[in-house]
């Protein structure tokens, strides 16, 4: 994903009379950030910037181990929490596999019977009443 670009007003709009305040504020902002960089430039060396290298220190286990959310409710003790848990489960389900209204097996069976019927319709139309009777018996 491309990073979201910060919205900026076009220059022609900023030049209008009623936009004077916004224009001044923007200029001040740019000035401030430039100063910020220069302020510590002589103290912070590039060595200090890259001292940690590829190593990121974390003091918490929650980034290391895969842990569940710590607030849980079961069998309707706290409906509010259970609703949140359900919502969370749903989002993870969608990520994993698409939710199906009809399972693969049912779809296969339906298609199979559909094909057979179609086949029997075209090739041997005389047999059809017999099969129909059987179905009724069942």
């Amino acid at each position: 994903m491309a990073p979201v670009k910060k919205l900026e007003l076009p220059k022609s709009v900023l030049d209008m009379k009623f936009m004077r305040k916004a224009k001044e504020r923007k200029e001040r902002e740019i000035e401030n950030t430039q100063d910020h960089h220069g302020l510590y430039a002589n103290i912070i060396t590039s060595e200090m910037r890259h001292a940690s290298g590829n190593f990121i220190s974390e003091t918490s286990f929650i980034y290391c181990e895969d842990l569940l959310e710590g607030r849980l409710s079961f069998k309707g003790m706290n409906p509010e929490i259970e609703r949140l848990m359900e919502q969370e489960n749903k989002t993870t389900d969608i990520d994993g596999e698409m939710q199906k209204d009809i399972s693969d097996e049912v779809l296969f069976e339906k298609l199979d019977t559909f094909k057979k019927r179609k086949h029997s319709n075209t090739s041997t139309p005389s047999k059809q009443p017999a099969t129909k009777k059987k179905k009724r018996l069942n």
Binding site: E65, D66, L67, L68, G70, R71, L72, S73, F74, K75, G76, M77, N78, I81
Partner: peptide, 20 residues
Amino acid sequence: LSPNCPLLNSLKNEWPFELA
């Protein structure tokens, strides 16, 4: 809290409770 721990999974269908 680890997802592999069977504790909560075996308790959750027994009786209503909540925990933090």
